[in-house]
């Protein structure tokens, strides 16, 4: 068996394992999905009136708020990758894996891929609910694909971050606390209204430097305006850059965790 084959099998086995553990513990993802759907319903129901404002340029508030719901659900799925590594460190299964000839990368990749698959399913459920609420995607089916890709990119960035924190701290509480970064990322942004309607200068500044803003804007572009390439491209570019940083961070932590004392 050559190295590539071995790597593929190791990654597949460890992904399958993560998925089984995930399915056996539905309460690791149901609350998160529930909160995201709750956001979608409550904000659409309660705030849709503000979409009458000219700054919304006639957009449907459902389309405006949908990316917030999708992205907050994705954070939960992606954070699971780090949590699952902490669980392995605590149970001793991590040490057991290190004593096998398993490819080191597969140990990290398994839970990460499982997290991405979870995130795709969650996103499809949220999109399904949004369609039931009357969602129309201006860019068509291709637009849905763009939303999925952006979500996976965002999820990967967050998974890299959570894996890095997990392997660095080797502590469940610290890994859990690390996910709190999700609050500033989601709420210091164009979460509820377009940038022009944000009055506080500090919040406006925060929204401009917050990478999530570009994610929201590119998703809104395909939902509301169709194939407007500017925001779509900047969305992918920003997500790509963030991914590069967090994945590099996680590779560094992983190299340290795998390095023998």
């Amino acid at each position: 068996m050559n190295l590539v084959q071995a790597f593929m099998i190791h990654t597949w086995i460890l992904t399958k394992r993560s998925l089984i553990v995930l399915i056996r513990n539905p309460f690791t993802f149901i609350p998160n999905l529930f909160i995201s759907l709750f956001f979608l319903l409550v904000y659409t129901g309660g705030l849709s009136g503000i979409a009458q404002l000219p700054q919304f340029e006639g957009a449907d508030y459902l389309s405006f708020i949908l990316p917030v719901s999708i992205v907050s659900a994705a954070v939960g799925g992606a954070g699971g990758a780090g949590q699952s590594l902490v669980r392995d460190l605590e149970s001793g299964y991590f040490a057991r894996l290190l004593q096998t000839p398993v490819t080191r990368l597969a140990i990290v990749l398994g839970p990460t891929i499982a997290g991405m698959l979870q995130l795709i399913v969650q996103t499809l459920i949220i999109l399904g609910v949004a369609f039931l609420l009357g969602l129309k995607v201006e860019a068509g089916p291709g637009g849905v694909l763009v939303i999925l890709l952006l979500t996976v990119g965002w999820g990967l960035a967050f998974a890299g971050y959570s894996v890095a924190i997990a392997l660095k701290t080797k502590n469940a509480q610290a890994a859990q606390a690390g996910t709190l970064i999700f609050f500033p990322l989601i709420f210091l942004s164009t979460t509820f209204v377009p940038l022009e309607l944000i009055e506080a200068q500090w919040l406006r500044a925060a929204a401009i430097i917050n990478p999530t803003t570009y994610l929201f804007e590119s998703m809104r572009a395909v939902l509301i305006d169709g194939w407007v390439m500017g925001p779509i491209i900047s969305g992918f570019a920003v997500i790509g850059a963030v991914c590069a940083v967090t994945v590099a961070f996680s590779v560094r932590s992983a190299t340290r965790a795998f390095k023998r004392e």
């Binding site: 394992r17 089984i20 553990v21 056996r24 513990n25 669980r87 392995d88 149970s91 001793g92 299964y93 991590f94 040490a95 057991r96």
Partner: peptide
């Protein structure tokens, strides 16, 4: 000394 098992499996 400590078992190395994923107890969910």
């Amino acid at each position: 000394q400590e078992t190395g098992l994923d107890k969910e499996l």
